[in-house]
Amino acid sequence: MDHKQITYAVEANNLVKTFGKERAVDGISLNVPKGIVYGFLGPNGAGKTTTIRMLATLLQPSEGHAKVMGYDLVQEADSVRQSISLTGQFASVDEELSGRENLIFIGRLVGFSKKDAKTRADELLKAFKLEDAAKRQVKKYSGGMRRRIDIAASIVTSPDLLFLDEPTTGLDPRSRNQVWDIVRALVKNGTTVFLTTQYLEEADQLADLIGVIDQGKLIAEGTSKELKASIGAGSLTVHFDDVTELEKAKEIFEQQLNHFAEANLREISLTVPIKEHAKAAKAIGELANNDVQIKDFSMSQPSLDEVFLTLTGKLPESEGDELHEQS
């Protein structure tokens, strides 16, 4: 097929998707340069999956338009499908079949001959360390193996653009790292990856460009460095042996760091957000200068919660709240 000379893998212009009265995606515009990992970061129910489903031609946009790999999403849907692959959040392979059968099945559907489909399946099983499980039904796979076969099925032929919807949600750290390695290798080979995630760390590790989405709107976009700079370096937590020390420290912190320090009396600890690491060191030093006894201290990376807190002025809704609202 002809390859268009394009700069952007995705060019979305004011995409809207409404379900009844609800605006699940509420006017999203974004440009994803070719050859990068774009991380779509947001809490549950923010509109990540709906956006990906629109870009993968599974849902018709209610308003707005978009080009994927240079093709119009609606007018040239079939050409879009030729250029993309989608690994959904849930099973995107047939759980009743074995891993090998699934790959042969997809291979046949993208147009390989029986022989080529089998060769390709075995090649992928080997590459994804699934040879031993090749003949086992996918429903008997572990979470990490599931993810790998899902992704393998998406790259039976190399897509120009690969959509991964929450590829590591629910995975243990080792499996998560394996998925990350696969994503990095794919990008090195020229595939553009558009992934959604709830984890800042994941976006941080993988994405060249991050879009933060909340309530159907893109509320910030930038590199991980840029986003972090906008929300500070994280937070400092200090533990004490008794409450009097904590109270002395609270006063010093709030003066030094110019921010409310949250006290946890049960754990006898203080937590305060930090703009720069140097300031945290200085604040700790100031405690020593004032003879405040501390038990230990730790710095934490900025969390998604903090990104949200900073960007939207409120905490993201948890899954529980969402379920509650729907019922």
Binding site: L109, V110, L124, T157, S158, A185, L186, N189
Partner: peptide
């Protein structure tokens, strides 16, 4: 396995 594999003709 991950180096570019051309899409064959659509079935």
């Amino acid at each position: 396995a991950i180096t570019v594999k051309k899409r064959p003709k659509k079935p």
